[in-house]
């Protein structure tokens, strides 16, 4: 090896999990907004990963309707190589099954088997309804999962039919649930959450702050709260069709 030849420095992996409700009620502008927002945010995640010597960002996608399915069955994919394929909506809202599937892969035997280790993941749940299966059993199990406990968890409730109580149970607090009512806000939220949750999660911890050492989850909630305030003003003005 010459003095100037190197291989890339080992970096941690940070997986961003999209957990997307694809039940029948999502059909139309909701799933359309989800599809286009995620597609548009992927290049930003790629940029975030590209020059980041601390962490590589990977993406995993789980959809749930009648049952849950991984769209990344072979494990998380590097943001650089991820190609989003539009998803369709039909069926019921089996959130419980999604929790079980997520729990299964949140393991060093599942999706978290990087040789150089991982940062705790960011888990992003989007739903517009209430669970139709026995979600409790699944969620209780998931809540025991060590990766899940450490993860940044955030959820977007799409329209007023979304069960924000259940979503709060999933994320651990009502503060990390945002309700949106139109396409523009939903897209904005998806982009904001994907990028900022990945950033917060993939950067090393903020330690040594004189203002108290906040965990990544609470640091992220702070950002989310600010963002909610900022978007509130512009959100419901001219955001396209409104969802009840």
């Amino acid at each position: 090896m010459s003095l100037t030849d190197n291989v890339a420095i080992p970096r941690k992996t940070m997986v961003l999990f999209f957990v997307v409700d694809t039940s029948g009620s999502m059909e139309g502008s909701k799933i359309g907004a989800v599809n286009s927002a995620i597609e548009e945010v992927i290049p930003e995640l790629k940029n975030l990963s590209d020059a980041n010597a601390d962490a590589q960002i990977k993406i995993a996608v789980l959809e749930f309707s009648s049952g849950a399915r991984w769209l990344t069955p072979n494990g998380p994919v590097e943001a650089e190589n991820y190609v989003w394929r539009d998803i369709d909506a039909s069926g019921v809202t089996d959130l419980g099954d999604a929790c079980l599937k997520l729990n299964e892969k949140l393991s060093t035997k599942g999706f978290m088997q990087e040789a150089t280790g991982s940062f705790a993941p960011a888990i992003f749940l989007m739903s517009d309804g209430a669970p139709t299966d026995d979600y409790k059993t699944g969620l209780d199990k998931l809540k025991q999962n060590a990766w899940f406990k450490k993860a940044i968890k955030v959820s977007v409730a799409i329209g007023d039919d979304a069960d924000s109580g259940v979503l709060s149970e999933f994320t651990g607090s009502s503060e990390s649930v945002v309700t949106v009512h139109n396409v523009a806000t939903l897209k904005k939220m998806i982009k904001f959450v994907s990028v900022r949750a990945s950033e917060v999660s993939s950067k090393n911890a903020n330690v040594g702050s004189t203002e108290g050492g906040d965990s990544k989850q609470s640091a992220f909630i702070d950002e989310l709260n600010n963002f909610k305030v900022e978007t509130a003003a512009s959100a419901d003005a001219g955001g396209g069709d409104e969802w009840a």
Binding site: E114, A120, A146, W147, K150, S215
Partner: peptide, 18 residues
């Protein structure tokens, strides 16, 4: 050296927590 001086076998956990 293109590696971190404190990152070796004792500091390579599966999950890097705070």
């Amino acid at each position: 050296f293109v590696n971190h001086p404190l990152e070796g076998r004792a500091t390579n956990p599966a999950c890097m927590t705070e």
